[in-house]
Design a protein around this nucleic acid. Structure first.
Lengths: 334, 334
DNA sequence: CCCATTTAAGTAAACGTTTACGTTACCCTG
DNA sequence: CAGGGTAACGTAAACGTTTACTTAAATGGG
């Protein structure tokens, strides 16, 4: 239906090869033929077919991105960075929402393989052996985002979760808090769970405050779980003056139930989040939190992936800088 | 590198055609050969190449989705619905972030054309003639999301913006409010701008309240603009008892600056939003708003698009039901 | 037991490119 | 002016499938 390179060749009275050559500025044709070919391309409104091209040079200029939840603010800020970088480098991105479901993940990986994507960005989920094996089989570059692995051929880009949590808690104690609760993410999560708890614990200990397991609560990173955890805190540890949540969503959930229980933040209780999503600025009062530069992380990871695709070499992992952003949810009680 | 259908054929001692036939359950082979072929497929870990397949049957099983801003909560809730439906029907989605930039949009459209997507979802932006022409040229099905057009071959799925705004304002006056300001979206926006203003005006008039242009303020749907508008309201029309914002983000912006100015919501001023994003529930107090079922809209639009792709017929446009969700930002002052 | 029909395959063209290689025709050099 | 070199093309194979067409063998009916 659409005109092909063959149609152009016929109409311009040249061979297919010549058209292809002027299309790619490869030289080997006179100025006159270039003019002629260019003209008929315009006339026919010819558009190259990337599928045919992909078949022959085994490159689709497409990367696959896996998210546990595309609709989360976390994912969409990453996606924004990814999309920006990737499109500027003439790649496209196909997104997959794994729902944190192993079966779905495997299915999507298969799909991406069949579609011959040039590389894969794997975000915010731990890389199970099962996935790793399949990925190895696919022989495409992979970079991990906000995740980590020991496999040497899979670089990651993330922040230092231990240090970020450490800094957050350290910040709170310098503000005079000593009875600090933590709302952790999913129990046992080796990336966003344990290291942040360790950071919390070590920061406390560095200030001579004993770690108290009664002050440790678990959620699942989502808003609702933050509220539930806050309820528990209010019941079981009302003496707490500050709570550090392992995600902004949980922090905001905590914030909501705190105020619903008649507490003022930060006057009665301080709250600190983790991520610095856009909505951290939007809540009331604006949330003090530790910032992950998600947009940049998305761009950096895409850059590494494209490098790997085009150079064939494996990229270095990268730890991005985090920072504390002071807003209005932690009070100075010194 | 990866095994091809040819490798399978050789190893199984059959022809390529036979392998293809068992792959697609087309019949024309004995049980024994099926066994043999299936076995060698497993042995070789053969995966079909969707690119080659796409070249021949002119279907890529891929759709393109254009968003003005992928990182917005609005887009990502749509995307979630789209992704879910689309993947369940064996399509993939490639996302493009237009940034509301005409040049970028045109570039992405070109890209999607080269990549031979089977259809396009065009979201939340008005369909300029320029885009329409290109889209026509591409000869692929298109469905509009939260947008609208008179072109007959481009169905849309959205809610009734006029009626939704009408209902919101009507709700507020039944709560006793008569001096109601509106924070509209971008001035002149024919989809999410004018109709909502009209709904506001007509609802007022239906209750015998004269429309007062002093009560109409403009933003751009984003958080910050809601705050700015609220500041203006407080200065120029302090007698207002309620404000209706044309997006949740603006409503939340208004909410923030209102409380920063020492006002309590809803005691001192009522606020109502539009969209029912996830964050409407997360703010404090939870935002009363008019709900667009974004996840469903995404699914429905995807369904229509896939229908069009597979049937060749153009689908009907659809107006989805909206609803008022009462939370805690509008006070009854009767 | 022969011929017609069905079953189980194989052959090859086609999809739209890219690219290695071949073929002219022309120019320049010695 | 013979010969090599080069510029300007054209030819055709290849990428990995699908599928229309062909062929050979098996089956069945009279």
């Amino acid at each position: 239906m659409n005109p092909t390179i063959k149609d152009v060749a016929q109409k311009a009275n040249v061979s297919i090869a010549t058209v292809s050559r002027v299309l790619h500025n490869l030289g080997g044709y006179s100025d006159k033929t270039k003019q002629k070919v260019d003209r008929t391309i315009k006339e026919l409104k010819y558009q190259p077919n990337a599928i045919a091209r992909g078949l022959i040079n085994k490159r689709t200029q497409t990367i696959g991105v896996l998210f546990p939840d595309v609709s989360s603010a976390f994912s969409s800020e990453l996606l924004h960075g990814i999309d920006e970088f990737v499109h500027n480098h003439n790649y496209s991105v196909v997104v997959c929402n794994t729902d944190q479901d192993g079966k779905r993940t495997l299915k999507y990986l298969q799909l991406l393989r069949e579609k011959q994507v040039d590389g894969i960005l794997f975000s915010s989920e731990v890389l199970k052996k099962e996935y790793y094996d399949l990925l190895e089989d696919m022989r495409v570059p992979v970079v991990l985002i906000s995740s980590q692995t020991d496999f040497p051929n899979m670089p990651y880009v993330k922040i230092d979760d231990f240090q970020a949590a450490y800094d957050a808690v350290d910040y709170m104690v310098t503000k005079g808090h000593r009875r600090i609760a933590m709302i952790s993410g999913t129990k046992g999560d080796p990336i966003a769970g344990t290291p942040r708890i360790e950071g919390y614990r070590k920061a406390l200990e560095a200030h001579g405050i004993a770690f108290n397991s009664r002050y440790l609560f678990y959620g699942d990173f989502m808003y609702e779980s933050g509220g539930r955890a806050m309820k528990s805190i209010l019941q079981k540890a009302p003496e707490v003056t500050a709570v550090f949540a392992a995600s902004d969503e949980m922090a905001i959930g905590a914030l909501s139930t705190a105020t619903q229980h008649g507490l003022n933040v930060p006057e009665d209780i301080s709250i600190m989040g983790y991520d610095d999503l856009r909505l951290a600025r939007m809540v009331n009062p604006p949330l003090t939190t530790v910032r992950q530069p998600l947009h940049d992380i998305g761009m950096i990871a895409s850059g590494k992936l494209i490098d790997m695709i085009e150079s064939g070499e494996i990229a270095q992992s990268q730890i991005c800088a985090h920072s504390i952003v002071e807003r209005q949810t932690v009070r100075n009680i010194t």
